[in-house]
Design a protein around this nucleic acid. Structure first.
Lengths: 230, 230
DNA sequence: AATCGTATTATGGCGTACCAGATACTGTAG
DNA sequence: CTACAGTATCTGGTACGCCATAATACGATT
């Protein structure tokens, strides 16, 4: 009996601890704007809202702090981290470097499976745009990059990108809604796929960089238009 | 009275919470090998050793978990994370991409101050090698890259690199002791500085990549020689 | 003797209560 | 109306207790 079969009969437990559930809930609440940047996160309030003890809440807050989603003011307590424009640009830049690297590796591998998987995610994005389902756009975009990284076994880099991405998630949801992004975004991504298909590592690298550069530019515009009013 | 003066008389508190102190202690203990990979980290034992309460210990463990230094086995508890060779290679690769990026930016800026600061760190590294002070080599190498990133205001990327670096720290201390590394390492780094001095972005990028590639190769050799015996 | 079931122990997960110190708020006295 | 004192609020930190689970040891039964 080998691998696949052994897993098939495995009895899977919920396994999720209360802490992990709470963590996901709070992270969710932050990224989709239920808690706004700058909001104070009062421990005992969170206890009540989540229905868990302070022990759990504190561990969750520490975890989110190390993810960069929560900042801790000394003697004041935790607040939802503010995203300043400079930091956002840096995050986009890093994503560009890493996604470009992954794209290059994909191109160098010249595997039809990679292309097929990417095409599928891309189709999903197009459909989601057509249906105006923005949250699905985000999910499918994530899936696209997830395959880009995992197909060449770069799970660490994927982890880094993911970590950074949650910090700019509300930016992402704004850039995505921008006019013309529904056409240009998928277009840029298809350029990545094209380069990968023809084994053009340098081209794939450039295309991936271009894509996040465009996103970064939009984000900057959105953010600098909003920041002063804040 | 303006800014500078106001700060001058500011009574500075330790400001570090007990939690942060404990975090540093445990991280230290893991990084420099007091706790070995695979060791169990029993909460109540740590309480005794650190002299703090379980709450604090648990928060510290959560934090280290999200840093990747500690892994949590379900129904078993936390252990010191094992570093497998594949992961180490990926970490080196990411560092290459980011440090290359930073080096290119430094070169493009063409600032004498950057060159001076880098030269200083480099001299520190050479001296430390000469004095056979390996821990100083590590510190100075960190300083070198720290200036590389912060001189062009890339503190987020620096944070990422730092985060990843602690996970391979014991590898670093092994690669550094390798024969000839005391000559080749600084040589490669001086190539980075040279390229920056003459404003050669592409050259700086390549030199930085080469440097971590060399480190990665050594690490792989060291690790694959040790892994089976483990 | 081998196996099966049970008791014990170790440990993590989680909750509660409490205290100290800092900060923000509020009401009162001058 | 202002200054000051008192109070409420909140985090940081500690101690302790309970429960669930996993592993181990031990004893009984076949």
């Amino acid at each position: 009996m080998s691998g696949a079969l052994k897993d098939a009969i495995r009895v899977e437990r919920p396994a999720k601890t209360l802490r992990e559930l709470a963590l996901d809930k709070v992270r969710e609440a932050i990224v989709n704007g239920y808690f706004r940047p700058g909001d104070r996160l009062v421990e005992r309030d969170l206890c009540a809202q989540l229905g868990v003890s302070r022990t759990v809440v504190r561990e969750v807050l520490r975890h989110l702090e190390s993810e960069g989603l929560v900042a801790n003011l000394p003697n004041k307590g935790p607040i939802v981290a503010q995203l300043d424009i400079e930091e956002a640009k840096q995050i986009y830049e890093i994503r560009g470097a890493l996604e470009g690297m992954a794209a290059r590796l994909c191109a160098e591998r010249r595997s039809p499976e990679i292309v097929a998987a990417l095409e599928e995610s891309l189709a999903g994005i197009r459909n989601s745009y057509r249906d105006n389902d923005m949250s699905a756009v985000l999910t499918n975009t994530s899936a696209f990059y997830h395959t880009l990284f995992t197909m060449v076994d770069r799970n660490v880099a994927w982890g880094v990108v993911n970590l950074l991405t949650v910090r700019i998630n509300h930016l992402r949801s704004m850039t995505i809604k921008t006019e013309r992004r529904g056409i240009e975004g998928p277009l840029q991504m298809s350029k990545i796929v094209d380069a990968i298909r023809r084994g053009d590592g340098e081209g794939a690298y450039r295309a991936a960089m271009d894509h996040v550069a465009a996103a970064s530019a939009i984000a900057e515009a959105v953010l600098s238009a909003k920041q002063p009013a804040d």
